[in-house]
């Protein structure tokens, strides 16, 4: 089974110049935790996710691994302050610029392996040769399809 057989093609996307606050609203409405970010030409520029927004709320010296866990620190209002700063920014400065990209003819095994190795989030973006977005595959999509195969609803062709 290949990426093109499993990918979701009805996509909600964000534009590089969108503001974080608008995209957050859109994600909330669509009940999504991640949106691909594209340019005017539909080329993938990155990914915006609840995780990448959260990364901007926690100071860099913490998320960069310098301080891993800080069970000794009080709230300090840092998150609130950074939240207000972050939602006013455009996606370009907040999105993750190196999402996991896969090709439409990649095997399910290859995609599952790439998702596992990537580790940051559970989505892969399927792109064509020009890096234009054509679909999205989540770890959940793969597991659903495998479940269907075992129940005999689908074969793995």
């Amino acid at each position: 089974m290949r990426a093109e057989n499993i990918m979701v093609t009805e996509l909600t996307t964000a534009h590089v110049n969108d503001r974080v606050s608008d995209v957050l609203d859109r994600m909330k409405m669509a009940k999504l935790r991640m949106l691909p970010v594209v340019t005017d030409e539909g080329v993938v520029a990155g990914v915006i996710s609840t995780f990448s927004i959260m990364e901007h709320l926690v100071p860099n010296y913490i998320v960069s691994g310098d301080l891993n866990q800080i069970p000794y620190a009080p709230d300090m209002g840092i998150l609130r302050r950074h939240y207000f700063e972050t939602i006013g920014k455009d996606l370009l400065s907040v999105m993750e610029t190196k999402p996991l990209l896969v090709k439409r003819d990649e095997s399910l095994l290859s995609i599952a392996a790439a998702l596992t190795a990537f580790g940051k989030h559970e989505y892969a973006l399927v792109v064509d040769e020009e890096k234009r977005l054509i679909g999205v595959i989540s770890a959940g999509d793969i597991l659903d399809r495998l479940g269907n195969m075992i129940e005999g609803i689908e074969d793995d062709a």
Binding site: P59, Y61, I62, D66, L67, I70, A73, P74, M76, I78
Partner: peptide
């Protein structure tokens, strides 16, 4: 400094 500097940043932030 690897261990004290990040705590220092946290303290100055506070």
């Amino acid at each position: 400094v690897l261990l004290i500097a990040p705590v220092t940043l946290l303290i100055t932030d506070a």
